[in-house]
């Protein structure tokens, strides 16, 4: 029981971590809040479902197509929808509100398109749905694969951003957007690239989620909310923070659902969120900036 819960929690936490890393990159580098983030995730989940059911291709291979599609989508959203708003605001406070509204609009459009295309029903497909024995507990193979995929793509990204030259440039923009251009970093290009990278991560997250969870056209909002909470908990733009906060959130949620009541998971999430907001407003790993 305990091992099963632990692994289920790690799987969920790994997924949250993966998804939140994408959002923390988007928000940390491009400085615009993307409320349509969860819809990108669900769109990728639908794409994986289509690829699996109508083409018979495994979601792992589908990822080769879906992740780049997420990358392009993120790039387009920033270049077409958000860049004009950034230019208009000239660094003013209006950008925050404008970007919230514009991505809100995008949320409804994507959600509406999925609703028209797939209807409002819960959707799932069966892939690698057999048990694997781990420490005496039986765990579904697709969950295990989801955990491995989440950790692999999250960890890979972490290494890329930490040890490569362009990764360092991206992090520089996240830390000091005003100073980055002084050392020759094209902040605008970095923002576009960060947004695209976030889109690719959202797509990976969507594929992972589709392998072990049911989803509907309207479940994106919940993912956006949880990803935002993880981002704030971990500190904006902080990858290690997002990773650990995501795992914490997934574990807490699963344990509360198993041992307390499935109806109280959100309450538990909010309780942690509130505690962290009051205790460390800049996140678990964030440095006190305000």
């Amino acid at each position: 029981m305990l091992t099963t819960t632990l692994i289920a929690g790690l799987v969920l936490g790994g997924t949250y971590a993966l998804v939140a890393m994408g959002l923390t990159i988007q928000y940390g580098i491009a400085r615009t809040m993307n409320l349509a983030y969860g819809e990108t995730i669900i769109a990728a989940a639908f794409a994986a479902y289509l690829v699996h059911n109508s083409l018979g291709i495994s979601p792992i291979l589908g990822l080769v197509l879906i992740a780049p599609a997420g990358f392009v989508f993120g790039w387009l959203v920033y270049a077409l929808l958000l860049k004009p708003l950034v230019r208009r605001s000239k660094g003013g406070a209006a950008l925050e509100i404008d970007s919230i509204l514009a991505t809100f609009g995008l949320l409804f459009v994507i959600q509406g398109v999925m609703q028209v295309g797939f209807g409002g029903n819960y959707i799932s497909y069966s892939y690698m749905n057999f048990g694997v024995d781990i420490l005496g507990a039986s765990v579904a193979a697709n969950r295990l694969l989801a955990l491995v995929m989440a950790l692999a793509s999250g960890g890979g990204l972490y290494l890329l951003l930490t040890y490569t030259r362009w990764g360092t440039a991206l992090r520089a923009v996240a830390v000091a957007p005003a100073s980055a251009p002084l050392v020759g970093i094209d902040a605008d290009r970095a923002a576009r690239f960060g947004f695209a990278l976030g889109g690719a991560l959202a797509a990976c997250g969507g594929v992972v989620i589709s392998m072990y969870q049911t989803f509907t056209a309207s479940s994106g909002v919940i993912f956006t909310m949880k990803a935002l909470i993880v981002v704030i908990m971990g500190g904006v733009g902080n990858l290690a923070g997002a990773l650990s906060a995501g795992l914490i959130l997934g574990l807490v949620e699963t344990f509360v659902a198993t041992y307390v009541s499935p109806g109280l998971t959100l309450a538990a999430v909010y309780l942690i969120f509130l505690a962290i907001l009051l205790w460390r407003p800049s996140g678990l790993f964030g440095k006190a900036r305000r």
């Binding site: 929808l81 708003l85 404008d98 514009a102 809100f104 995008l106 949320l107 459009v109 959600q111 509406g112």
Partner: peptide, 20 residues
């Protein structure tokens, strides 16, 4: 009724861009 959400979303975007 089926395209309500799409139209609502487009309206959001239009208002942000045209009537800030």
């Amino acid at each position: 009724p089926n395209h309500y959400s799409i139209l609502l979303g487009l309206l959001f975007i239009v208002i942000v861009f045209l009537l800030p």
